[in-house]
């Protein structure tokens, strides 16, 4: 079992700094989607020494959180902090390669912590209201430069939010995952199955949010097409996925022609 040595302390610090920067992409800067689990997890996994664990967590979490959207004043759970901390916890708490049960436990722990990220996100946005009021009340000359300074200070607030949360979550999570490793074998098997089922939960969540219908024809068609292609031609998965996407495009065009 690894102890909290200098390597882990440094890795936690680097995760918090990089996670803070990645977190800016979520709201404050650009929104290039670097903050999505499918990108952030492999990146952090690679940084702390196990990119494979990052790919697994990123693939499992991406579909679960992708349609949890910030609309109006609604602030969704911060999937970026959850995904980054799950990756760092799983890798840093494992002596070698992160095992599937450890990955499952890390994902579950960060899921439990997700409401905390929502609360803190809300607090930062409330605090930012003061920035706007200060800028609007400022009547002194050189208002533009002053407004820019106040506005950009919001970046610091957004960075510190992710930085501090990661600095708390990751070490606490490493400790919890170390304790998890002493739990009975049944719990380990359960966590391994949990990870394997997460992608299906993600598929269900996206299917539900993309369509109001109980069963969407494109969804069923994609399933039948890909399963049949895999069985009949034994084609590589990459080819099957690309052909399925093409079938979806042709289906959309056919539907458009019929309705026009």
């Amino acid at each position: 079992m690894p102890t909290l040595n200098l390597h882990i302390v440094l890795a936690v610090l680097v995760t918090a700094v990089v996670g803070g920067l990645i977190g800016l992409d979520r709201t404050a800067f650009g929104q290039f989607m670097v903050s999505q689990p499918i990108v952030a997890c492999p990146l952090v996994g690679w940084m702390v020494g196990d990119s494979a664990a990052g790919f697994v967590i990123g693939a499992a979490l991406e579909l679960i959180w992708v349609l949890d959207m910030p609309v109006g004043t609604f602030v969704p759970a911060n999937a970026t902090i959850s995904a980054i901390s799950a990756t760092a916890m799983a890798v840093l708490a494992s002596p070698g390669k992160a095992s599937l049960p450890v990955i499952g436990a890390s994902v579950l722990l960060t899921t439990v912590l997700a409401p905390v990220t929502m609360k803190v996100d809300g607090l930062v946005r409330k605090w930012n209201s003061r920035l706007a009021e200060r800028a609007r009340a400022d009547q002194r000359p050189d208002a533009g430069r002053r407004l820019a300074r106040i506005h950009l200070f919001g970046l610091v607030a957004f960075f510190l939010k992710s930085f501090v949360l990661l600095l708390v979550f990751v070490p606490a999570g490493i400790w919890a995952v170390m304790l998890f490793q002493h739990l009975p074998e049944n719990v380990h098997r359960a966590m391994a199955l949990f990870v394997k089922l997460l992608p299906l939960l993600g598929v269900a969540l996206v299917a539900r949010k993309l369509s109001m219908k109980a069963v969407d024809l494109f969804f069923l068609g994609g399933f039948v097409f890909s399963a049949a292609t895999a069985q009949a031609f034994r084609a590589p998965a990459l080819v099957i996925i690309l052909l399925t996407a093409l079938a979806g495009l042709l289906g959309a065009r056919y539907r458009a022609q019929r309705s026009s």
Binding site: P199, V206, L210, S226, A230, I241, G248
Partner: peptide, 29 residues
Amino acid sequence: RWAGVLKAISHTVLGGIVGTLPLWRQEFR
């Protein structure tokens, strides 16, 4: 129009994810 096309492709590939379940990477199989 584009939103409709992208949603249709997303739905089809979502079905494809489940259809290729036996081909998933080792960790998820």
